[in-house]
Design a protein around this nucleic acid. Structure first.
Length: 233
DNA sequence: ATCCTGTTGG
DNA sequence: CCAACAGGAT
């Protein structure tokens, strides 16, 4: 009689072979080089600017963020400037973006980092997580996009891509599903932080432009050769 | 695990 | 008008 498998509450382990992972990374990277949009937060490594862009993008489409982003940075060019500002002025600059608790968190964060951390936005995801309004996703994004650290990140775009390509049966919004997705994202990370910057940007860009929620464009997808869902749409 | 917040799509 | 969304918070 076969041994009973041990009662396991571990996240469903999805293992990806080194070959598949490297094929995925390579095709994704080549695609990104050609198809990426040039967005202002992709040409800076200023942690403050990256932070602002990530917080704004959490809740708003790229097109609208573009207007607010420039204006906000014009009014508050640095973390210090933001920390010194009156709450009222910060809220005015955010007016129209919605989710105003996040603007209040941002201001709180600016004050906290200037007074308690010498004005340096933390480099490590664990430290970033402790700041108000920073969750797992934003922590990974700031570590990767501002500091070029070799850190994974999973937002809904990335979750959708990884689910479709590697784990079609996964329920992405369950607790176990999300654990599994972070594990997959980490297995896929390239060798260096510099490469990780592009890799993460590319994952999100693929989710936005090709592996869309509604009408995925499988015929033009760069990773369809390794995708478990291709042609099920 | 469930709730919170404004926006978006059906 | 309701449901889904998207991250974070509790």
């Amino acid at each position: 009689m076969p041994p009973l498998s041990p009662p396991t509450r571990a996240a469903p382990r999805v293992t990806i072979t080194a070959h598949t992972a490297s094929t995925f990374r390579r095709k994704l990277h080549a695609w990104y080089r050609i198809h990426s949009r040039d967005l202002p937060w992709r040409t800076t490594r200023d942690p403050y600017r990256i932070l602002i862009s990530e917080l704004m993008l959490q809740q708003t489409q790229v097109s609208r963020v573009l207007e607010y982003y420039a204006r906000f940075l014009d009014r508050f060019p640095t973390l210090d400037a933001l920390a010194d500002a009156r709450p009222k002025r910060v809220m005015e600059a955010w007016e129209g973006l919605g989710y105003y608790a996040r603007a209040r968190n941002l201001h709180k964060l600016a004050r906290h980092v200037t007074t308690e951390r010498d004005g340096v936005i933390p480099h490590e995801p664990v430290a970033l997580r402790e700041l108000p309004g920073i969750g797992a996703y934003t922590a990974g994004a700031v570590a990767s996009f501002a500091y070029e650290k070799r850190a994974a990140l999973v937002d809904t775009n990335v979750a959708r891509v990884l689910t479709r390509v590697f784990a079609p049966k996964l329920k992405p919004k369950s607790s176990a599903g999300s654990k599994a997705l972070w594990a997959i994202a980490e297995q896929l990370l390239p060798r260096t932080g510099k490469l990780t910057w592009t890799h993460n940007q590319a994952l999100m860009e693929l989710g936005a432009l090709v592996c869309a929620a509604r009408a995925p464009k499988c015929p033009v997808c760069p990773v369809r050769s390794v995708c478990k869902s291709v042609d099920t749409f």
